[in-house]
Design a protein around this nucleic acid. Sequence first.
DNA 1: CACGGGATCGTCT
DNA 2: GACGATCCCGTGT
Length: 205
Amino acid sequence: MARRLPLAYYQSDDVTGIARDLLGKILVTRFEGQLTAGRIVEAEAYMGPVDRASHAWNNRRTARTEVMFSAGGVAYIYLCYGIHHMMNVVTGPAGQPHAVLIRALEPLEGLDIMGQRRNLAVDHPRLTVGPGALARAMGLHVQWSGTSLTRRQSPLWIEEASSLSPESICAGPRIGVDYAGEAASWPWRFFIRDSAWVSARRKCT
DNA sequence: CACGGGATCGTCT
DNA sequence: GACGATCCCGTGT
């Protein structure tokens, strides 16, 4: 098993840099002894205070978004459309509510478990594609919002992996944030150009 | 492949 | 009481 990303990794100010750098890293969960893992192939940065697409826009604090204001290195998981659980990585120092939404994985381990959770065949091409889909496949649920990604006993974490070449990474506008005005066009969605496991528009911009 | 609609509920107005 | 950082299935081309 590879080394876990250290706490300092998450506490950088540079949320777009982290979103880009998380590509290729391995997201792992072990809930009730069931190990599942996938390679991050698509992620979006949400820059808290200045980003109208962010739940923490203008430093808005609510019970739900409070974990976004924690120091980086914890999960922010929320329920979307009453159905889908969205997995985010909180980044930055305490008080700075930046986060990275994990949008797609390439499944690596525990595919049988993922298939059961998704009620799909193990070799389904969309087993872990899309934020709601991957959260379900990995067993992620709002009950785990606020959980550390770095504590030794944590059931979810991210493992180190070699960096990708800049040419293999694409950037473009984020998905589903049309309500966010000017922020909707900011190119803060990052994905691996050649991955078959990317969720939406594949064109590089 | 593109589009449209239904599912479903916590959160904030 | 309205509305999502979505998904899946159906229809039509």
